[in-house]
Design a protein around this nucleic acid. Sequence first.
DNA 1: GCCTTTCTTGAGCGTTCGCTCAAGTATATA
DNA 2: TATATACTTGAGCGAACGCTCAAGAAAGGC
Lengths: 190, 190
Amino acid sequence: MPRKPAYNRDTLIAQARDIFWRHGWAGTSLKDLERELKLKPGSFYAAFGSKDALYALAMERYAQDGVANMMALAQDLGPLEALKAQPRLVVEASELPTKACMLSKTYAELQARGHELAGQARTHMIAMKTCFADLFRRAQKAGEIGAEHDPVRLAARYQSDLLGLRLSAERDDVNAAEIAADIAADLDRL
Amino acid sequence: MPRKPAYNRDTLIAQARDIFWRHGWAGTSLKDLERELKLKPGSFYAAFGSKDALYALAMERYAQDGVANMMALAQDLGPLEALKAQPRLVVEASELPTKACMLSKTYAELQARGHELAGQARTHMIAMKTCFADLFRRAQKAGEIGAEHDPVRLAARYQSDLLGLRLSAERDDVNAAEIAADIAADLDRL
DNA sequence: GCCTTTCTTGAGCGTTCGCTCAAGTATATA
DNA sequence: TATATACTTGAGCGAACGCTCAAGAAAGGC
């Protein structure tokens, strides 16, 4: 009996992710979302409930894709080569809304006010770090890196370097490709 | 003939820097500033002109102090030891409003909208990077690091690592001291 | 003590914010 | 075709935003 929505929910979430990713939480107004998603306020709130609820969905999508992408890369190249390739891939990716990590941007913007979305960003970053640690552990088991290293510590450093790289890649005064190459080179010395 | 202001301008700028640093541009309202600086709207606008003008002053103060601090450290320890010490000092500093870099936070928040303050943050970050490059150059001349390295490239990587470290240091799930130690250890292998 | 000059005060401007809701429209079922 | 059940629309709510300005208070120079 009912009527179907004129929009595709998953598409809208992906669109919202890109807008939030680029402009941040406070930098994105409902007017912006209504214009880009082509939804009037009523439809928007019927579909998602609130700006924050949509932001949470967008961030979840972002995090899931990030982990899936890393896993697929490891499937293709093996764990160490995947970790080495990722910095270059991020810098070279031209279709991203922005180079900086959406999770770190969210965390940096909202943590001081104790916003709930900052906590969710933190959770997603931990999942990503765990994914990195798994890859380091697998590389270690495969004998690709020395047994004296702690995979969790390597993962924390790697994630930190990646966050810095992605921030740097936003700047036109920085040669991000060089930094990416140097991060990858460091992994070969482990 | 005139009447003196009841406030100290430099103190207010330092206070504003800490508030902006912690909460960001959109995250800080005039109400917040009026409350913390104990200034009514009229006095505020007579003194600083606008929220953005005060933000620019705050960021300038932040950047000047950053370079001065690095220079003083190099004076005490020499260039390489200063670069090695800085990561640990940032992580251990307990009096900072927040660990993340104010310039990178500003840039990440406002760059996508083309805000003028993002451009100013960019300029200050370039100055900081130039300061790092100088120290690497001096370390190289002193024979502390190999002649095959490019000081500018080292500076870009170092700044990127530092930005990542400072973002990571905001998170309670990360052992930032370990990352800081690893960054310093990398400098010894140059 | 008076006058001039500046600083301080706070009510309130116009705008934008996230969001609500009642009325209208389209569609799957009976 | 009639009806029930969504979805769509857009005017507009109360609150918060950055900011203005006229009136009052304080302090140096004479």
